[in-house]
Design a protein around this nucleic acid. Structure first.
Lengths: 336, 336
DNA sequence: GCGCTACCTGATAGCGCTATCAATTTATGT
DNA sequence: ACATAAATTGATAGCGCTATCAGGTAGCGC
């Protein structure tokens, strides 16, 4: 009796097992689980009992393959530690889960190559959509996205050029607002310290600062940026360097709260008073600027709300909704 | 011309498309991509060309279904914002990617119900393994894990009871170390402020503090914990409350750096000198305690290294390695 | 040359699930 | 009551990929 052994099976309980036990066709079981109202009460109960008895857990891979529908959303973040990213994710993921989607997460560490690579591997898992932080992509990445034909949502950075859905903030306005605010208060020698200088979010802020400085006939000379990520050390060392070059510096704009923190500590080391001797402003990721002592003025961007809006937009996109509005949503920001 | 339209297809490039273009069988393409050395150089090149030309991205769901092998790892974190979690994830995910695995991420917000729910949905996606932060689980969660028969790795919190792989730190030792350090320096009225009081990591720290205080004949009276997450506000308000109850308080232990920050700011508001009037110690998630001014003493746990170790352990587990050692790894900590 | 192993290659048959469509039962309308 | 619409159910045929196995080609020893 040579077994025609053709294939192994995982040994896990399958739909067919449930169907057999419940004495119905497997298609009915499938429906009972996904569209219960299409199945008569009697069979539905029978099936539910069989499911419970066997401890059946559907195999998503098979379901996805058969239906062509995915229940995951791929997200690529440049960093897992920066507040903008983590706050966004916290609320986005929560909303996503409620919609019944899983999160496939990748982390690019601000590298285009890594992003391209991630894009490929994540798309291989057939997500229903791709969410990207920032709207700066390499040509190759764009190509991959194009080929995938997946809906793409770019968050955080508003880009007029983006052809994708886009929810975020105009960071050059952020830079401008911080600068104007300081100028209105009478500060003139305003410096700038920024991290992630290669990232367009930082470049936009920097350009915003430069623009307003020039418009106000002030020299946008005192700035310092680095390729590195934000850190307290960057703030401390940065302000030290700027003060060496320009003793009269009276205000400082920081691209991240960690930098502001560092600058603050350095001022305290030097017994410089904030904001009398030096005003510090930053793009705040949390409550830091209000709660620190002395309190700082900061631009607040509601990344949590952004996460919720992004999920909503995605729901429309993935649901039946045809087109509920603009492809671009400006989340705005507040200056406190 | 009635089309025998039987099924839609995603329209995406498939293995068969590549095979056709390369003029080979689809099985050969599959091999060329997964086990290149089983294919002759000539065909391999041809196939690679076709892959590039079409921008082929394999469909993992199909592959997984056919092979029964998964390429994702499910991770459940209690928080996406706390430094311990994000630092761990940063390095863990990087190592995971190098191993060719994707990350399925869930976020439980410190809720057991959410964790159970996530466990079910994530397991439905057939991950190769499950990684959990902390080692405190509900009975139901344990049951689900048991049923799934998946390898489980618990990180961060070392638990003697854990039957799973376990990499982490003994947090009661952390609490003890901070307390002993302060006592050695001559502090006597040592307070404690902790966030996430329901979490066993916090409870262990608290118990460590209590233990050492009692051993040293000091009353472990001045503490304050909250169900909430750590925040600057908690630190500020917390120390204010403790100082109201006990003016002589001379040292403070904080479960998180945000709390220490808040306490620091409150001291500055009150012109209390650190550490002359009040010494502040915390479990630091980053470089904060060294880089702030005045610098604080803190316990540092290398969560990044933990991420790398976790990935290594997982590699052994998922690879062919039978058993390369202990089921429990103590990452230790340092006091600076 | 011949048998034999080693290596490549491709046809075939599913993996577990769902879309489709036909078959059956039940409700509805005139 | 009888035709027609609506609601249920199940058989069938894949989704895109890989395990298996059989067929073909080289290489080797004698």
């Amino acid at each position: 009796m040579a077994e025609p052994r053709k294939r192994r099976s995982t040994g896990r309980v399958t739909l067919a097992d449930v169907a057999k036990l419940a004495g119905v066709g497997s298609m009915t079981v499938s429906r009972a689980l996904r569209t219960p109202d299409q199945v008569s009460d009697k069979l539905r109960e029978q099936i539910q009992k069989a499911v419970d008895e066997l401890g059946y857990i559907p195999n998503k891979a098979a379901g996805q393959l058969a239906s062509g529908q995915s229940s995951s959303v791929a997200v690529i973040l440049p960093s897992l530690t920066e507040k903008a990213c983590t706050h966004f994710m916290t609320d986005f993921q929560q909303a996503l889960n409620k919609m019944g989607y899983q999160l496939l997460l990748g982390y690019s560490n601000y590298s285009s190559e890594k992003e391209e690579e991630l894009l490929s591997t994540l798309i291989a898992s057939n997500p229903a959509a791709v969410v990207l932080f920032g709207s700066e992509r390499s040509a190759k990445a764009k190509q991959i996205l194009e080929n995938s034909r997946l809906p793409v949502l770019e968050v955080a950075e508003l880009s007029p050029l983006s052809t994708n859905l886009n929810i975020g903030v105009d960071y050059s306005e952020v830079g401008k607002a911080m600068t104007r605010h300081l100028i209105e208060q009478g500060y003139k020698k305003i410096g700038f310290i920024g991290a992630r200088e290669n990232n367009s979010i930082l470049r936009k802020q920097l350009r915003g600062w430069q623009t307003v400085m020039i418009e106000s006939y002030l020299p946008p000379d005192h700035f310092l940026t680095t390729h590195e990520g934000p850190s307290i050390a960057l703030g401390s060392e940065g302000i030290a360097k700027l003060l060496l070059r320009e003793k009269e510096l009276d205000a400082l704009i920081c691209s991240h709260e960690e930098i502001a923190m560092g600058a603050m500590f350095e001022c305290q080391r030097r017994s410089l008073k904030i904001p009398e001797n030096l005003a510090i402003t930053c793009l705040d990721g949390s409550q830091f600027s209000e709660q620190c002592y002395p309190p700082l003025t900061a631009v607040h961007i509601n990344y949590k709300q952004m996460g919720i809006e992004a999920a909503k937009k995605l729901a429309d996109l993935l649901g039946d909704q045809p087109d509920n509005g603009s492809r671009q949503i400006d989340m705005g920001f507040k200056l406190y």
